[in-house]
Design a protein around this nucleic acid. Structure first.
Lengths: 119, 119
DNA sequence: CCGTATCCGAGGAGATACTG
DNA sequence: CAGTATCTCCTCGGATACGG
């Protein structure tokens, strides 16, 4: 975090990158978007290699930025559910665009890497 | 880097994120896209707070991924020029989309943060 | 000019243990 | 269940200094 010192002020996409593309945020948003409202453990199981500590950190950040909503139910045992907000859902077309680019150009990147490495 | 362990295999945008949105890559690509072909020092001056080491690292990564092209001129003093490739330029619409989202929704994020913090 | 070599500190990640 | 609390390990970014 704290990437936006001053160089990126000239780069209009920099602020978004900090919010949307920090570590683990896209998989979390994707899981929430694809499978809807779900509990902490469900997310934890879906993101197979994340630890509860980090998952909590990222969820808090996303909640603070208004992309994810957290609902606490005072039951026994306690239940907490997370869901994507309207603001978070507004990223949908952007992610779709990203996926489209990936389909079209990822092979070229792979090819460039091979060419670069075998040299 | 090395973000794509396994959890993100389920997230189709994850691979792109590693390539395009690692630290400093968007400002570099933006500078190259806006001001065209330029030398190492020009980039260094434009990205005011980057160090030569990191700039070199990122440029190498971008070159390896085929997003940036490096041209070396064996002169005295030496001259090296960087420019965005066709593949790199194909990210243009995506960045535009990002900038659009920023214009539309960044205020909402700021507002969410304020609301979250004053609580 | 265009980098590389070194050292350092911050932050992410893993493991483990413990509450309400 | 849904976290928080430590502690350690380790990678990466930043700063500084030097070399072809």
């Amino acid at each position: 975090m704290q990437r936006s010192a001053d160089p990126e002020l000239a780069c209009p996409v920099a602020p978004v990158v900090d919010i949307v593309f920090s570590r683990w945020t896209t998989p979390i948003l994707w899981a929430l978007h694809e499978h809807g409202r779900q509990r902490f453990v469900e997310l934890e199981r879906r993101l197979t290699s994340i630890t509860p500590k980090v998952l909590t950190q990222r969820l808090r950040q996303l909640e603070r930025d208004g992309l994810v909503a957290r609902t606490y139910y005072a039951e026994v045992p306690p239940r907490v559910e997370y869901e994507i907000t309207e603001l978070g859902a507004s990223l949908g077309p952007l992610f779709a665009h990203l996926a489209t680019w990936a389909d079209a150009h990822l092979p070229a990147v792979e090819q460039a890497r091979s060419a670069y490495d075998t040299r």
